[in-house]
Design a binder for these strands. Sequence first.
DNA 1: CAATTGTTTTTTGTATACAATAAACACTAA
DNA 2: TTAGTGTTTATTGTATACAAAAAACAATTG
Lengths: 220, 220
Amino acid sequence: MIPFTKLEATPLSERISTLLKDAIIEGHFKAGEEIGLTAIAERYGVSRTPVREAFQSLAKDGFLTLRMNKSAIVVGIDEHFLRNHYEIRSVLEAQAAYDAAANGKDFSELQHIQENAEKMRLPMSLDEFRSYNMMFHKCIWDLSGNERLQQLLSAMWVSSYSSSALPEIHRQTRTFNSHRRLINDLVTHDCDAAFEHMKRHILGSLTNILKILDEGKKEE
Amino acid sequence: MIPFTKLEATPLSERISTLLKDAIIEGHFKAGEEIGLTAIAERYGVSRTPVREAFQSLAKDGFLTLRMNKSAIVVGIDEHFLRNHYEIRSVLEAQAAYDAAANGKDFSELQHIQENAEKMRLPMSLDEFRSYNMMFHKCIWDLSGNERLQQLLSAMWVSSYSSSALPEIHRQTRTFNSHRRLINDLVTHDCDAAFEHMKRHILGSLTNILKILDEGKKEE
DNA sequence: CAATTGTTTTTTGTATACAATAAACACTAA
DNA sequence: TTAGTGTTTATTGTATACAAAAAACAATTG
């Protein structure tokens, strides 16, 4: 008998949390908008308890601000927010790369991921690219050996950003180049180079996102 | 009429959270020990709801690991944990210092904090030193202009570590020197120096803590 | 009218109730 | 014995109930 993993094994609070997080990032809430516990609970047809937990989780991740005995406030995903977010992420990812270069021993999985991706015909679909990119970074987090760092970066990963940010071929090849260079830093145990290159890599994706954000604003 | 702030205005979940966090750090739980929702709720004489929220908060901060439908597991505050924790903190504090040097304009409050502390007769009491140290770092977080960074560092601040780590005079003066040098980096807008010095400063306190941890083990 | 006070309504914080999952135990069959 | 199975017990996930705080509104007074 195969011990199959039940599909329903995700707590409601988590599901609500991801739903709301995506909604906030997609801009379905206005910046500074007040959202009440009861309203969300009714919208999704669940009780207030899991919604409360989702709210607290989102607040810890910086997407909501909670007020005692009052409704929560949606944090606006504007340029200021994105700069702050990516500044933190860049330095944490950089540290992960540094550690991976310092402590890592077996980079075969990382190379495997990279080679598999490069074998594909460009441009990859958005989902394919997202999956590859996610695996690449996650692998480096693992190699860092710092579980807490992995946890933090995991929470900071926002799939929607990258999905909208990488439609074109030359962006994908640019990412490939960046990743190849990083792999080289790791296998040669060049910690400082890995740190710097990773930092640049992440901040580069920020500029992409800001560019897209700007273009979106001009269209309106 | 003065709008006085009520003393009782702290949610139960937060109070439980800080209590448990301190207990974990003080080592009142064994590493890997399982603690149940119900048990904690009964111990503190509250219902399970706020305890649940506290558990999730602690899990997000890396002090507990939650398991679906099972009791939580206490993360051991051992050398590995402390290294991971301080590595992350060092790079985040360093980034805050970098930003403060880059964006900061008015450093008078920071200098004020420092001067006030240096006027005191050494050694300061543990509480005094903790308070001064906290204010110093918090001020730099503010100057960074990155609210999210401030939030993260705030959650990573563990008062108990520093309280046990700084009993002697020469440690306090060493901290003073380190802080003075940082202030100098900030007012001269030397971002890279601020980054490096802050990183060293935090990692230095880690070595202190590890030393004390080691001494404690030998005594047993 | 403006400002204030008292009352009603809504929304949150916490406690309890109920359902579902997992652990513990007793029992049976090979 | 031991592996497996059904049952009981304990513990968690979620829903609901209740108390307290805030918001909204009405009435009163200057």
